[in-house]
Write a protein that binds this DNA or RNA. Structure first.
Lengths: 188, 188
DNA sequence: TCATGAATGTAGCAGTTGCTACATTATCGG
DNA sequence: CCGATAATGTAGCAACTGCTACATTCATGA
């Protein structure tokens, strides 16, 4: 498990750094190889074909993404949906997260284009993210609360991307307003 | 103003159809030209360079997008944010809108990548969309209500793209729940 | 009619793409 | 030490990219 896997790991680490800076869907083999200190020939050798390279990069980035989330918003119960959303938005707007945000939106766009590998990874990230949010909501919060919050968060990322953080702020404020008096309204 | 502009219009119409089916950022001159019944040579001649072609296509698509919105959700005052959001989501999920949704997410991703032409167009579309939403909310609704609703809508599009319409539905339901008892809560 | 400009066709260039064929070196078990 | 397998280098192919040079046709006004 050591040699070959460590080699792949090293390659993926270097390539992921390159992707976080230059984008994923526009990445081609030779620049990726150069960033990893090897040749396109070797990437094909190790990953089969470009699709394999991208697939490996996708799961590697997904891992790093969820790990980074834990680092930025530690696992504590927040007092309301609004408080949690505010914290996440602040974290996502930190410069450190910019690369991931960029790649995430590339994954979304590729999914919309029908690229199944991207859609699968994107769906998996959302799945994990829902649980991640749920674990940070107040004890009584329902799954639907986590889902709603996450949807708003995605909208915030879109708005930020097109330079309308102000519009996104209105949504965050709205969530804060409607969730301030406790998150569980008992349904209906 | 007739000849040359009509020619450009015809080219743009054909190319836009191609883009709505095959994507914008991956579009290259020769396929675009073929779709328009001409040659890459002529696209450069009419639009200067590829950047000019893309810019023209972007504004042309933006026009068609806002026009299509009016057709799908006529300008009437809805009774609540939830009712309006439900109507828009239904419209955006119609097969007819799939191409626009795809292109829109491409614009978002390109904006996140720092491509200024895309970010400018994307921002302008959001600006127009905010007004469009506001005009359909109840009389007393505040601008922040339109902004919040629009942010949620963008989140819905992201979720739909990665195959998690169920998560998006939770957000729509949540908006319906919290806006059912009248949209103007007087602030705070 | 004819000259001038716009409009279009043909060929091609230099660069990038993913990928492959072939040869060479490195490594390690016997 | 040696033979097999893994790992890597070198060169290149065919397709595509945006774009250009050059030649030609077309229309239109003097």
């Amino acid at each position: 498990m050591s040699g070959i896997n460590r080699k792949r790991e090293n390659l993926l680490t270097s390539m992921a750094a390159h992707v976080l800076e230059h984008g994923l869907t526009t990445a081609s083999l030779r620049p990726l190889a150069k960033a990893a200190g090897t040749s396109d020939r070797m990437l094909i050798y190790h990953f089969g074909d470009k699709e394999g390279v991208i697939a490996a990069l996708l799961s590697y980035l997904a891992e790093g993404f969820t790990a980074g989330l834990d680092a930025m918003v530690p696992p504590q119960r927040f007092t309301s949906q609004g408080a949690l959303l505010t914290a996440i938005v602040a974290a996502m707007r930190a410069p450190m997260a910019a690369g991931y945000a960029r790649v995430w939106l590339e994954i979304v766009a590729a999914s919309a284009r029908g690229e199944v590998a991207y859609a699968r990874t994107g769906g998996a990230i959302i799945d994990g993210f829902v649980d991640w949010v749920q674990a940070r909501l107040p004890e009584g919060a329902q799954p639907r609360d986590a889902r709603a919050l996450l949807t708003v968060l995605e909208g915030v990322m879109v708005m930020d991307a097109v330079g309308h953080g102000d519009v996104a702020d209105a949504a965050v404020a709205w969530v804060c307003r409607t969730s301030a008096d406790g998150s569980g309204d008992g349904g209906k």
